[in-house]
Design a protein around this nucleic acid. Sequence first.
DNA 1: TTGAAAGCGTTACCAG
DNA 2: CTGGTAACGCTTTCAA
Lengths: 332, 332
Amino acid sequence: MANIRDVAKKAGVSVATVSRVVNKNGYVKKSTLEKVNKAISELNYSPNAIAVSLNNKKTKTLGLILPDITNPFFPELAKAVEEVANQNGYTMILCNSNGLLEKEMEHIEMLERKYADGIILASDSYTEERLKGTDLPMVLLDRGVNPNHSSITANNFSGAVMATKHLLKQGCKKIAHIAGPKNVLTAVDRLKGYQSVVRDSNWYDGDLIIHANYNTKEAITATKKLLEMDSSIDGIFASNDLIAIGCLKAIRSIGWKVPDDIAVIGFDGISLTDLIIPQLSTIKQPVYEMGEAATKLLINEIEVGKKESLFKEFDVTLIHRESTDKRGEINE
Amino acid sequence: MANIRDVAKKAGVSVATVSRVVNKNGYVKKSTLEKVNKAISELNYSPNAIAVSLNNKKTKTLGLILPDITNPFFPELAKAVEEVANQNGYTMILCNSNGLLEKEMEHIEMLERKYADGIILASDSYTEERLKGTDLPMVLLDRGVNPNHSSITANNFSGAVMATKHLLKQGCKKIAHIAGPKNVLTAVDRLKGYQSVVRDSNWYDGDLIIHANYNTKEAITATKKLLEMDSSIDGIFASNDLIAIGCLKAIRSIGWKVPDDIAVIGFDGISLTDLIIPQLSTIKQPVYEMGEAATKLLINEIEVGKKESLFKEFDVTLIHRESTDKRGEINE
DNA sequence: TTGAAAGCGTTACCAG
DNA sequence: CTGGTAACGCTTTCAA
């Protein structure tokens, strides 16, 4: 690949001049501009990004750290981040942390060493303590709120309230909650939302809450346990869609019918919920918009600087489908 | 962040010496080694990757270009690539091409400018013609075979044969095929596999083949069309799982039963197939292993150089589930 | 065993 | 309007 000196030589000018025309800054006489452009296209020159980076300490690279790209919630997020990044001339490095704090830290250090310009962190295990070494611009996504960093979340609490009230409205008399992990912020907020609605009901009981990780397998076990314990449960609010699908499988395996015997609603709104039978009611997060907002926010912090931490919370929406349609309200 | 000069000053040696101890090459007296190491840890020094790259023209960065991270087949691939890359000290840039040749080319150029060390390309539209500008090491994944580049694929043809024979064995008398796009290599091979099995059957007819893109929505339309045209169809081999799920939805919407009225089998083995009801039979590709193999192959080409193009084809396996279980062979 | 200095490809400042 | 050159942080000869 040709470099800037080759171009300079070919055009009969100095490298400084070439640099000026490439970056369109400074004055260049029209005739030399043309000479240089000619040389550039003849040599098919394009500036070496590494050398540029070494100078200005900017790499036009963003890091996206996710717990697990394999969880259907995240690919759409990744897509949004990648697209917005690209539109702004940035490139995205994808890092999987498997939810491990240690891996997260490794990735952050690596991104620093590679001079990434900023990081979008979707973390389970985020604690301010561990992050304070970094001074890279960083925005927290979906799973963490903290005064030192801007963050984007969905309104998990109010979504949980919506889900629980929806179940009530459909006629459920006793609603259980399969909560996510205790240390995951979204899970905690959703649990609180559920509790705020049912706390004062006469049937309410702490045993109606059971914890499981955000996956289908554990949810199956949890659901069976729940229904064995109390067969009068007729509604489940699952902390996310993967858990809800586990519920569906467990319920089916013991021969109950959804939604007649028991209604189920999830959270997230992954596309999967539309593909399964019965179709799963859920609280939909505007995932793409969230990824988009996070990326724009980050790029803004990088390019114009950060004044204050912004904390943006997105509204969620109820999607009413078969799995909670006890009253035949849906007409397909 | 501290740089090599800071360390040198602190240790009272030259930068050359620091470089030697960091890279463990050249002779260093034990006592100075210790001094230097001390300074390094006190300053928490780690070499600036950009500067290193500028020297050796290696960035320890791989590009992964995918049609669409949102298609459930790809996240697992991405995960494999990321993990293996990380294990070898590489970082992965993720690029979404949306299946557009133009976008692919843009990404490739960007990766060249950023001095990526190599590319893994999963492409629909791959044609050698367009790629010949690049001399970056590149391995083709899943959707392209070409003498100039190593490639990793699954055995699509024999998988299709397995699927079709499986349907026959389950008692299907007339099997249709919803094929993928005509310009996608995997789709073409699967179509050929199907044809090789049924071509000589007395019921065979070209109308039993219908094309659709690799998504659920189009598959619904296609399936309805197929069954309206010929209601004696009692088996469908779908070119991928997303299509198969579309079949299931369409079949359900017209009131038929799976697998009794009609059996359905997909291809890919995405985890989704295990979560839906009825569970979907499918031909499973070893996705993770494929991603792993591609990455190892690429890293090998980068680090030890490439002698010849390797062409590795992975075996696929039949997963027999409810959607084709006409004879009650599955005991859960 | 160690240090000085050139070079990697740019940009940006300072002169002219 | 243009050119020379220091600087970015590191590696790698070449000498000592």
